[in-house]
Every structure is written in structure tokens, then in C-alpha cells.
Amino acid sequence: MSAHARREPRGPYAKGVSRRQEILEAALNLFAERGFEGASLTAIGEAVGVTREGMRHYFRSREELLLAVMAAADERAREFPVPSEDDTVLSRIIASAEHNANVPGLIALYTTLVAGSVASGNARSRAIFTERFEDLRTEIAGAVEQGQARGEIRRDLPARAVASLIVAASDGLSMQWMLDPRVDIVEGMQLLRKLMLP
């Protein structure tokens, strides 16, 4: 038996994993198409032929499903293409902002989950988002340092602080945009980009 064959899920477990992924894909599409309010658990279940009660077989709670959807959205966003001739941390920031502006339902989901994570009794969500922000800051800080070494970003800026500022600007602009669509997320991130140029 090959190593590949040993790693492949088989039997009922494989079907469960496949079904769970199908639910996540349906949820991502519904959030993108119908927005936060239109992507209820019932609507997600109907999209894949699973009852609301049946959803608990794959996700123990609504929170678990929504956190899994958020993680899947993060993975999908990582695959978002950036023009190869301008593959810098600054161009990736703008591309990410443009992408986010096209999926208001996922922005609403993200904002709701982050806000809920700071409430008492939500230790699991808080831990997940604390780790997510730490990983994101670390990743962005590394990219900033590389950009500084190549002369694309001002060298007098502390990379870690820049990373925190980028996350804050992106999330803050997204939240303002949800409340008032006249707020231009991309314009705001482009201004931040200009302030970072040498």
C-alpha cells in the first residue's frame, strides 16, 4: 500500500469530511451571494440537503460552523491572485481590500464573530481570534521586513507596529463600510500604502 493510499480518508469518515466541506462551500457561497442575514443555518442546510438538526452531526454548534466558515474564507482569500509584476506586501494589501469589498456577507460574519469573541463566556472564540491576529501580525510583519530590505517600504517604520496598523485599518474601514457604504475601503488602504512608501 502506498503512503498516499494510507493517508486517504476511507469509509464513513471520508464521507463525513466530504459532507462537512460541502457545507462550508455552500455557506461561503451564500454569505457572498445573500449577505450575512441571508445565510441562515436553515438556508445553508437547504443548499446541501441537510436539515437544521442534521447540521449538528457535522458542527456541534452555530458558533463552530461560523468559525469554520471564517477559517475557510481565510484559506480562500490566500489564493486570491495578485499581479505577478507587482507582488509586494503593499499590493497584496490593496488586492485584499478590493476582494473584501466584494463579499459584504463575509465581512459582516467576521465582524460579528470578532465582536462576540470579547463577550464573557466565549473563551473558545476569543482564543481563536487572538491566535488569528497574532499569526496575521507575524505574517505581515515578515512581509514588511522583506519589503523594507528591497526598498519598497520606509525602513524607519517598526515592522510589527506597521503590521498592527494594517490589520486595524483594514478591519476598521470594513466596519465603517458596513455601516455606511460610502466609506471607500480601497481608497483608505491605498492611502496607508502611500504613507509607507520610501
Rank of each mutant, 00 (worst) to 15 (best):
R132F: 11
D135Q: 13
L24F: 00
R150G: 07
D135G: 11
G38Y: 04
F36E: 15
K15H: 13
P158D: 01
G188M: 10
S2V: 07
F31G: 06
V103S: 01
F59D: 00
T111V: 14
R7K: 12
E75F: 05
E25C: 03
L109K: 04
N102D: 08
L197Y: 05
M189E: 07
R155W: 04
G45H: 08
T51W: 03
L191H: 13
A159S: 07
A108R: 08
R7N: 12
R20V: 05
N29Y: 03
A149E: 14
P104I: 04
A161Y: 00
V69H: 05
D156H: 06
L66W: 02
E8H: 09
A26Q: 01
A68P: 03
D135W: 03
L179C: 05
R52G: 12
V183P: 07
T112N: 11
V167I: 13
R19F: 00
R56E: 09
G45P: 01
G35D: 12
R137G: 12
T138D: 09
L157C: 04
H4Q: 12
S174P: 08
L195C: 10
T88L: 01
M70D: 15
A143Q: 14
K194F: 11
F59K: 02
H57C: 09
A95R: 09
Q21I: 00
S96M: 11
E98F: 03
Q21D: 10
A71G: 09
P81I: 09
I185W: 05
N100L: 12
V89E: 04
V89K: 00
E64C: 01
N122V: 09
F133K: 06
S174M: 09
A108Q: 13
F36T: 11
R137H: 11
E145S: 12
I44A: 10
R60Y: 03
L192Q: 06
R78S: 15
L30F: 04
A169F: 05
V103N: 02
N29G: 10
E53K: 10
I107F: 03
E79A: 15
S117D: 10
P81Q: 06
V167P: 00
F133W: 06
G116Q: 15
I93M: 14
T42A: 15
G142Q: 00
R92Q: 08
A26V: 05
S91V: 05
F36M: 12
W177R: 15
A39W: 07
E75H: 10
